[in-house]
Design a protein around this nucleic acid. Structure first.
Length: 431
DNA sequence: AACCTTGCCAACCGCCTGCCT
DNA sequence: TAGGCAGGCGGTTGGCAAGGT
């Protein structure tokens, strides 16, 4: 036996609201408020509507300062960012967008934004496949013994600085061709996963990184120590942004709206920890110029990681670090190294003693190279180059944004969000 | 012109949560 | 402490409009 209905459905009107009904409801609430009882309200007004229906009508359409349609790019970004972090918690998302209702955002996401993003993803996917194909073709032509970048320490000082680092690393060696191949989405990916993968490429980060890596075959147990931290400094004062940080329950990750490859001042004597700016993400590009994925450097220098997207790697790239955990970005740190299957294999020594930084004479030269020395039992030097480019500092979310009460609509700046929402806001550091 | 498809979105449904008695 | 009730919320539906055939 189900729950009793909240009202007598036989005696209530359903369907679209008439202007008269709207007028009655609005004028009554303007004068009297709801009286804290939506169920009783329609009887007071003489409306043959369910109390819940009245509440919804008020919240979604009649209350002041409601905006409909015309979502801005910034709002899109915020919605995407929050969706990545907390999923379909529309009321929470709506609370961060003044004038927007959860219903509006939900509809907008389901009908437009999701498709818009998937459309972008198709283009990216298509472009990536063409790039990979071109790379293989070029490698065949060049021969296996030819390297695009020399990786011996002796060569480092002789390199011409900055000549290959000006733009996005994916463009360094392989010009971006016009897409010609038919788009092919990975049929194994469901809608949500596709969006998440796309949003990673757009600069977002998932809090539930376990899910992401599990999809790539990594052992969940190996990921327990990974933490992402939300930056807390250098918040742009003019940008309306939101967010939070809970090191034990990481949630609000970053969303970098664009790339900006900045300088990492490097010299042979400095440690990597000094040079890789904390709270920034970096592209990791292998020595073939292929973008492997992003690296995140946390605010305490710990728990950096290299979530490598194997989809971008060629067959010969699987020996590159798939994931590095508990990494302190300084001298002689050891990075756990997992292969694509998630098995712990070798460790990478990552520190200034084994790190030969490309000699960059000018601080305005974007990018740097970091030599990751792979220790071997024979003591040999298994150098391989990764290219590190700094992303633009992502916009971050201070905890100072007043919560808009979408649930009552009254005196929104005065009232607290309902308990459920308060709890979730607190959980995600949005209160 | 008629029919069909698609997109959009207002409104509803039903479950969950928290408050009150 | 348990049960009832109302609020809150996310998923889903249904109707309308626009576009396509």
């Amino acid at each position: 036996m189900g729950r009793a209905p909240c009202c007598d459905k036989a005696n209530v009107k359903r369907g679209p609201w008439s202007p008269e009904e709207d007028s009655k409801l609005k004028s009554y609430i303007d004068e009297n408020g709801t009286g804290g009882n939506w169920i009783a309200l329609p009887q007071k007004i003489g409306l043959k509507r369910c109390g819940k229906s009245c509440r919804l009508r008020w919240l979604n359409y009649l209350r002041p300062n409601i905006k409909h349609g015309g979502f801005s790019e910034e709002e899109d970004n915020i919605i995407c960012n929050l969706y990545i972090s907390i999923g379909s918690r529309w009321s929470i998302i709506a609370a961060q967008l003044p004038g927007r209702t959860d219903n509006d955002i939900k509809n907008y996401w389901n009908t437009r934004l999701k498709k818009k993003l998937l459309g972008k993803q198709r283009k990216e996917h298509q472009s990536r496949r063409v790039n990979a194909h071109l790379k293989q073709e070029m490698m065949k032509k060049a021969g296996n013994d030819v390297h695009f970048m020399m990786n011996t320490t002796a060569d480092n000082n002789n390199k011409t600085n900055g000549t290959t680092h000006q733009n996005h690393p994916q463009n360094l060696y392989f010009p971006q061709p016009a897409p010609t191949a038919a788009p092919q989405l990975d049929s194994a990916l469901n809608d949500h996963t596709s969006i998440r993968k796309l949003l990673i490429k757009l600069g977002g980060r998932f809090s539930d990184i376990q899910d992401h890596h599990l999809q790539q075959g990594l052992d969940n147990n190996k990921l327990k120590n990974i933490s992402f931290y939300t930056p807390t400094q250098d918040i742009p004062s003019t940008q309306q942004v939101y967010g939070g940080h809970d090191p034990h329950n990481p949630s609000m990750d970053w969303f970098s709206s664009s790339m900006n490859y900045s300088t990492i001042n490097t010299n042979n004597n400095s440690s990597c920890a000094d040079e890789l700016l904390l709270n920034n993400s970096y592209d990791i590009v292998d020595d073939d110029g292929m973008n492997m994925h992003d690296m995140l450097v946390s605010d305490d220098g710990l728990n950096s990681c290299f979530p490598i997207d194997h989809e971008h790697l060629g067959d010969d790239d699987h020996s590159m670090p798939a994931l590095c955990r508990n990494t302190k970005m300084e001298s002689s740190s050891v990075i756990d190294h997992y292969d694509q299957a998630g098995s712990s294999s070798t460790e990478l020594l990552y520190g200034s003693s084994s790190m030969a930084m490309e000699n960059e004479s000018s601080s305005s030269t974007p990018g740097t190279h970091i030599d990751i020395t792979k220790p071997s039992s024979s003591g040999g030097n298994g150098n391989s180059w990764v290219h590190v480019d700094r992303h633009m500092r992502p916009f971050m979310y201070p905890n100072t944004i007043p919560t808009v009460n979408t649930t009552t609509g009254f005196g929104s700046s005065q009232q607290q969000p309902p308990p459920q929402q308060q709890r979730v806001l607190q959980e995600y550091g949005l209160n």
